[in-house]
Amino acid sequence: MGNYFNKIIDLFVKTDVSADFQAEFQKWLTAEKFSEEKDSALKSLWQKTEEGNFAGISSQTQQSLGEVHKKIKQRQRKVNIRFLHFWQVSAACLTIALLSTLYFAINKKSVNADLIEQYTPIAEITHLTLPDGTQVQLNSTATLFYPEQFTGETRSVYLIGEANFKVSKNKKQPFIVKSNDLQVTALGTEFNMQVYPGNPILSTTLLSGSVEVRFNNMTTTHILKPNEQLIYNKQTKEDAINYPDIGDITAWQRGELVFKSVTLKEIFTVLERKYPYTFVYALNSLKDDKYMFRFKEKTSLEEVMDIIIGVAGNIRYSIEGDKCYISPL
């Protein structure tokens, strides 16, 4: 079903369209309605898109490779500056050693490991059980990659977004959740991890047991005790340990919404994941005031917005189609 979607995308690709139509197409593409159908149409376009070949590497690709190497160097320099002189050499050595061990460890076992990709659409939560019995709750718009079988020395999965893990005990095979900026190693334990790509704040909260958190760019590790939360800000590169209310951290799993000292913009970002509406607002129209809210499960977007608007005061909202428009009063 839904070959309208393939057809629209195919035609768009082939047609030299006007700027107006391009904007309209892109808006349609990113709208939540029929997002699964659109995703499968995009996947088939992806599969049709040709890969490069080794025989004839184009000069354009060669040039891009040069650029990428340059950017990688710049990033590494940025990270290295953060270490004291005395640490510099050892940090570099450790990183290389870590990367190579990781590389070998993965390479050895991944010969026929098939990876499964689990994606949770907006406004949903997925429960899944991994091959080792570990229970995972995956929050809206989060993606988890995991192998069909955990065969290596570790049980490694890859997370984008937010999830809660109840890891089954197996001391011989540590459970590792990797993400873009950090990785968490656990033996048998329960923890919540939030690593949404758009959010500069990464957090890992331990509910029980013990975990080790390691940042990919650094050699520092943190061992968390139960009820501790490690926060890392990608922009300021600062980390901190918090002691949050565990009920707040696990609220999303019960469908509740808890906001503690967050700006309206941050609130809307969370609401966009939880409800199938896109928020439309001018960035500079929102102040940086911080708010606290708590909503019960199954609160409708209208109820949530009525309360937020009532408290914030100087704005109003209107819901049309799949958009929620925010404008100043």
Binding site: R75, D114, Y158, K178, N216
Partner: peptide, 24 residues
């Protein structure tokens, strides 16, 4: 640039899925 730091994602099948998800 990000992929450089994640050799654990370089495995054949994983990298395809990962790149699709990232580019999308």
């Amino acid at each position: 640039v990000k992929l450089w730091e994640q050799p654990d994602l370089w495995e054949k099948n994983l990298v395809r899925n990962y790149l699709y998800t990232m580019v999308k």
